[in-house]
Design a protein around this nucleic acid. Structure first.
Length: 481
RNA sequence: GCCGAGGUGACAGAGUCCGGUAAUGUGAUGGCCUGCAGAGCCAUUUAAUAGGGGUUCAAAUCCCCUCCUCGGCUCCA
């Protein structure tokens, strides 16, 4: 079994082989927790969840890190730190803002059935490592200090642009507002930023009080835990430039080890009804809101239904389709359970077909995580099971294998609905009202045999009827344990 | 302007690298099963490859041109 992945660096499908036999080090750009996680984030993280689950299936031990940006992510329009700005708006301490959104976003991620990374590393917990890296870049001649800030000099790093396939001279200069005019060249990026006087997010450094730039935290965190090289770095396609380009410049500028990352993987963007998602268009969908409306299984199925590198379009109808398909899975699972309880005495007849489908599924997954084709074979499996049961051609062993396979394959996408107790108090009330009504009907018709059977059966279940002057009452008797 | 990804049935979405019968799901129609319903099974969905030109026995696929959409070009997952 060989996994192939499209590496953004080469633009080609490459055979995946980790540095260390049997172990995969993967880093995925995490959230800047100054606002709610949205569906686009969900799409990206759902893909890496799928990838890590599949790598585990292939026998690898996974070392998965995500960073949490809690400082240094600047707004392009004003040059303000996002966290600091939000804190000022909400009249809260910056860390209070980060903690609030971090918890909300973890809740959303958990509900989308995303496995948590091995480490969720906050930038502010790695200031020492960040300062060390900035220092190393200064010593190696890739950076310069200007007025209390430190910038990376992109002209010094020969390979700058190798990931995004961008020749340095073609980069457009100074098109945006330049808030940090200390830069030698507008294309240089900040490693360390001098803090304004009343800024709360600041730390002392060899260059005075300041805070780290956005790109440096990823290399500081990744290299602390992974060393100078690791296997996979993931994120969405919009991070290729400048974020990931900057990371390469920093890491390779510090260690000289190439390549810093062996496989760069990027997921496509999310659109809403064909339009890009943005706050200004008012089509910004929070993940928690989407989860309130759709089941996590349907969202995960919808996300897996198209190629991970292509744009994915949200529309209610697409997710409703997914919802129907999730229902289809639970239907067949119920059918299997029902038939397994009283199986016919037959020899196994379709275990081999199930195994063949599983093999095809895995082959599709190994081909750059081809989820659309993997899903197509998954539906073939569901169809096969239904057909075999329909034709009464199955054994207990067939059903058991079928069930295991559904759970295993569906587990990659997390699309198997949990068998939840859907019975709530309201439903019980409704059922009891209905039974009372039914029993009254039999009594009115003087069919006391049937009405008494109802009462007797319910008493056996621990529910007592009382015929009172005000009508029929029911209550639950003390349970015998 | 520069760099990149795309345009496939009623809808979503594969196939394009490596040319030869256009996956899969939803929807629709008919049938089977059935007291009714649900679930499922079978069949059909007839001219679906943005447009034009070229190469070829053969093009969604390769080449050229045009149109359109989306992303990036120091905010982004």
């Amino acid at each position: 079994m060989v996994l192939k992945l499209v590496n953004t660096m080469s633009g080609k499908k490459e055979i995946f082989k980790p540095l260390e036999e049997g172990r995969v080090k993967i880093f995925v750009c995490g959230m800047t927790d100054y606002d709610y996680m949205h569906l686009g984030h969900g799409r990206t993280y759902a893909f890496y969840d799928l990838l890590t689950r599949f790598l585990k299936f292939l026998g690898y031990k996974i070392y998965y890190i995500q960073n949490i940006t809690d400082v240094g992510h600047l707004r392009e329009d004003t040059g303000e730190d996002r966290v600091a700005k939000k804190a000022a708006e909400e009249k809260k301490a910056p860390m209070e803002v980060v903690d609030f959104y971090m918890r909300k976003n973890l809740e959303a991620a958990d509900r989308l059935r995303l496995e948590r990374p091995n480490i969720l590393a906050r930038a502010t917990g790695h200031l020492i490592e960040i300062i060390e890296q900035v220092d190393a870049l200064l010593k190696n001649g890739y950076a310069y200090e200007a007025n209390g800030s430190v910038y990376f000099d992109v002209t010094k790093f020969r390979d700058y642009g190798k990931l995004s396939k961008r020749a340095l001279k073609k980069l457009r200069k100074g098109a945006r507002v330049e808030t940090h005019s200390d830069k030698k060249d507008p294309r240089d990026f900040a490693l360390w930023i001098k803090a304004p006087k009343d800024h709360m997010l600041k730390w002392s450094s060899p260059w005075g009080l300041g805070y780290p730039g956005w790109h440096i935290e990823d290399t500081a965190i990744a290299m602390k835990y992974f060393g100078s090289q690791y296997d996979i770095h993931g994120g969405a396609i919009d991070l290729i430039f400048p974020h990931h380009e900057a990371e390469i410049a920093q890491a390779e500028g510090i260690t000289g080890v190439e390549p810093y990352v062996r496989y760069w993987i990027h997921t496509g963007m999310l659109t809403i009804n064909g339009e890009p998602m943005s706050k200004s268009r008012g089509n910004y969908i929070k993940l928690l809101d989407a989860l309130a409306e759709h089941s996590p299984e349907a969202l995960r199925l919808w996300m897996a239904s198209s190629d991970y590198r292509k744009p994915l379009d949200y529309s209610r109808r697409n997710i409703e389709d997914a919802e129907k398909n999730v229902k289809k899975i639970s239907n067949v699972m119920e059918l299997i359970d029902e038939k397994t309880a009283k199986p016919p005495k037959k020899r196994p007849s379709f275990v081999k077909d199930v195994q063949r489908i599983e093999k095809q599924f895995i082959e599709h997954m190994e081909n750059d995580v081809d989820t659309p084709h993997a899903l197509a074979t998954f539906w073939e499996l569901i169809s096969l099971i239904n057909k075999q049961i329909d034709e009464n051609e199955y054994s207990k062993e067939d059903l058991e294998t079928a069930r295991e396979t559904i759970v295993k394959l569906g587990g990659f996408f997390q699309i198997i609905p949990e068998k939840k107790k859907e019975i709530d108090e309201k439903m019980v009330e409704g059922l009891m009202d209905f039974l009372v009504e039914l029993r009254q009907k039999f009594r009115e018709e003087k069919d006391y045999e049937t009405s008494d059977t109802i009462r007797r059966k319910l008493r056996g279940l621990g529910i007592a009827f009382e015929d009172t002057a005000e009508g029929v009452k029911w209550r639950i008797k003390a349970r015998k344990t």
